[in-house]
């Protein structure tokens, strides 16, 4: 049976997620990345919006709100990229990859476990930051700004694109991680590679693409398909022999 067609073991995937989350909590670099970056990306747009005068023209409000929401989108784009890029190369560097590969875990399970372990805290943090942002704006911003931000399509786009952007960043990060031999290089490359989908979000945010429900769902579906395909493609890239020998003719 083809490895991709084999049934997934959720026991193994859960074990991976639990281990990863435990490891993140005690990894200072990852913990700081997950805690500090999102706060920065949330505080900055809040300050910008608070600075808007009450009589600001609608077009100015639209631009600032669009930029602010785009800034918030950096959280699901960048936070998991840092974590995901560590997924494989980090294990290899600390010598834990070989023992894991000697277990019955399949590449699809290993990668899905890694991806979900990066996705879950990202979603939690991203939605939490978005919630704090909405609460702060709702409580203290001018009414016309609040009206602009609390539009259903904007909220829907934010809720929908957060996991999909995170998914893209995670798979790109893991793909780079499987091919990289250095954690820092993998993290830098992943951070850059996580940004392109933000262009789409930016176009929606700046009303270049009209944020209708159809557009939001269409773009969301496209990103979802890309994320699922990415999982499959990265699984085929996951080659035990190359990962162990580092591609070197050892």
């Amino acid at each position: 049976m083809n490895a991709l067609q084999s049934p997934l073991s959720w026991t193994r995937i859960r074990a991976l997620i639990r281990k990863e989350v435990n490891d993140y909590r005690r990894n200072r670099f990852i913990a700081v990345t997950m805690a500090v970056l999102p706060v920065v990306f949330m505080i900055s747009p809040v300050i910008t919006i608070f600075k808007l005068p009450a009589d600001a023209p609608a077009s100015r409000i639209d631009t600032v709100v669009g930029l602010s929401l785009l800034y918030l989108m950096l959280i699901p784009a960048l936070v998991p990229a840092v974590v995901a890029s560590y997924a494989v190369v980090g294990e290899r560097e600390q010598g834990t990859l070989e023992p894991v590969l000697t277990t019955p875990v399949r590449p699809t399970e290993f990668l899905l476990g890694k991806a979900l372990a990066a996705l879950l805290p990202t979603l939690l943090i991203s939605y939490l930051m978005y919630g704090v942002f909405l609460a702060a704006v709702g409580a203290f911003a001018h009414e016309n700004v609040v009206h602009d931000i609390f539009q259903a399509p904007r909220i829907l786009a934010q809720l929908l694109f957060t996991p999909l952007l995170a998914g893209w960043s995670i798979w790109v990060g893991i793909a780079i991680s499987t091919r990289s031999s250095d954690v820092r290089v993998a993290q830098q490359l992943s951070s850059f590679a996580s940004l392109p989908p933000l262009a789409v979000a930016a176009l929606v945010g700046f009303d270049v693409i009209k944020p209708t429900l159809t557009v939001a769902l269409g773009l969301g579906l496209a990103l979802l398909v890309i994320d699922v395909l990415a999982w499959r493609v990265v699984s085929t890239l996951f080659h035990r022999e190359r990962l162990l020998t580092g591609g070197v003719k050892a």
């Binding site: 281990k19 435990n22 490891d23 005690r26 990894n27 600390q94 010598g95 834990t96 990859l97 070989e98 023992p99 894991v100 000697t102």
Partner: peptide, 13 residues
């Protein structure tokens, strides 16, 4: 079961 030369433990766990 395989025990590699380096035990490969998660040191933070």
């Amino acid at each position: 079961a395989v025990m590699p030369e380096s035990p490969g433990l998660y040191l933070r766990l």
